[in-house]
Simulated scan of single mutants.
Amino acid sequence: MNNVATPVLRNHAKEKLSRGEPVYSMTVRLVRTVDIASIAYTAGFDSVYIDMEHSSFPLEAAGQICMACNHLGLTPLVRVPGLDPTFIARVMDSGAMGIIVPDVESADQARALVRAVKHAPLGERSLAGAAPQLHYRTFPADQVVRVLDEASMVVAMIESQAGLDAVEEIAAVDGVDMLLVGANDLSVELGIAGQMDDPQIHKAFLRVIEACRANGKSIGIGGLGGWPDLIKQYQDLGAGYVSTGNDISFLSAAAAQKRQQFV
């Protein structure tokens, strides 16, 4: 029997960002099972983002983790390899609450990302029917489209000089929720690989922050997990979303620390 109640879907990370509260995220590149959602939840993270750009992560595993996160009240985001609308739609249909696209360098690319994530009139994504985000309950199509699009996050990564040069236009695109600075790739392109305290990186963060402020968009910090003082500095300047590190680095650090206890 169809459930005629009005669908309710909450994106807790998006809500926190809208209130000016910090959101701390754990990147998943290694663990393929739903256990990682509970580990992130117990550790106190607000969000998990599954990295399908720099891993061999299969879509089925990503979808299972997204569904587990949704049940726990964590916000599951997925970084896809690029602007493939068919693949983005499949990721969203598998339970993701938002898409992160790397290396966005123009407003046209940002608009293409919005079209891939959102349904009409803002986008062009096909309506799949009963959604895992709504626990496969059946609602009128117009209500499903509305709640999915209101809850979903569209995140464009700025990690190149071209992206910085167009950041004001990218931030102005309707439907983009957040710009996430990818400090690792940005530092490589600028010829200062890994030098996160270099003035060029600071200047880049300030430009992104100003563009987001001017357009009412959230600001994300990526690649600074090992630089907590810098993270705090950019949070004080308005950044809200913090990518703290990934499961590989967390496991490696904890394993090394444990081994040193037995030297």
Results as ranks from 00 to 15, higher is better:
residue 5 A to M: 13
residue 9 L to Y: 09
residue 10 R to P: 01
residue 13 A to N: 01
residue 14 K to H: 05
residue 22 P to V: 02
residue 28 V to R: 12
residue 29 R to M: 15
residue 35 D to R: 03
residue 36 I to P: 12
residue 43 A to Y: 11
residue 46 D to K: 04
residue 47 S to W: 13
residue 52 M to P: 13
residue 56 S to P: 14
residue 57 F to S: 07
residue 59 L to C: 08
residue 59 L to E: 15
residue 62 A to K: 07
residue 64 Q to V: 10
residue 68 A to E: 11
residue 72 L to F: 11
residue 78 V to Y: 00
residue 79 R to F: 11
residue 80 V to T: 02
residue 82 G to R: 03
residue 82 G to P: 01
residue 83 L to N: 01
residue 84 D to I: 10
residue 84 D to C: 05
residue 91 V to N: 13
residue 92 M to Q: 13
residue 94 S to K: 08
residue 96 A to G: 05
residue 96 A to I: 00
residue 98 G to L: 04
residue 98 G to T: 06
residue 104 V to S: 02
residue 106 S to D: 06
residue 106 S to W: 02
residue 106 S to T: 15
residue 108 D to S: 13
residue 108 D to T: 15
residue 113 L to P: 08
residue 115 R to C: 10
residue 120 A to T: 10
residue 122 L to M: 12
residue 124 E to Q: 11
residue 125 R to K: 04
residue 129 G to E: 04
residue 129 G to N: 12
residue 130 A to D: 10
residue 136 Y to V: 08
residue 144 V to Q: 13
residue 148 L to K: 02
residue 148 L to R: 00
residue 150 E to W: 11
residue 150 E to A: 12
residue 154 V to H: 01
residue 157 M to R: 06
residue 164 L to W: 09
residue 164 L to N: 07
residue 167 V to P: 11
residue 171 A to G: 12
residue 171 A to R: 07
residue 179 L to K: 02
residue 180 L to I: 00
residue 188 V to K: 02
residue 192 I to G: 00
residue 192 I to C: 02
residue 195 Q to P: 03
residue 196 M to N: 00
residue 198 D to Q: 02
residue 204 A to K: 03
residue 207 R to I: 01
residue 210 E to R: 09
residue 211 A to T: 05
residue 216 G to W: 09
residue 222 G to S: 08
residue 222 G to Q: 04
residue 238 G to W: 00
residue 245 G to M: 10
residue 253 A to G: 13
residue 257 Q to E: 14
residue 261 Q to K: 11
residue 262 F to P: 03
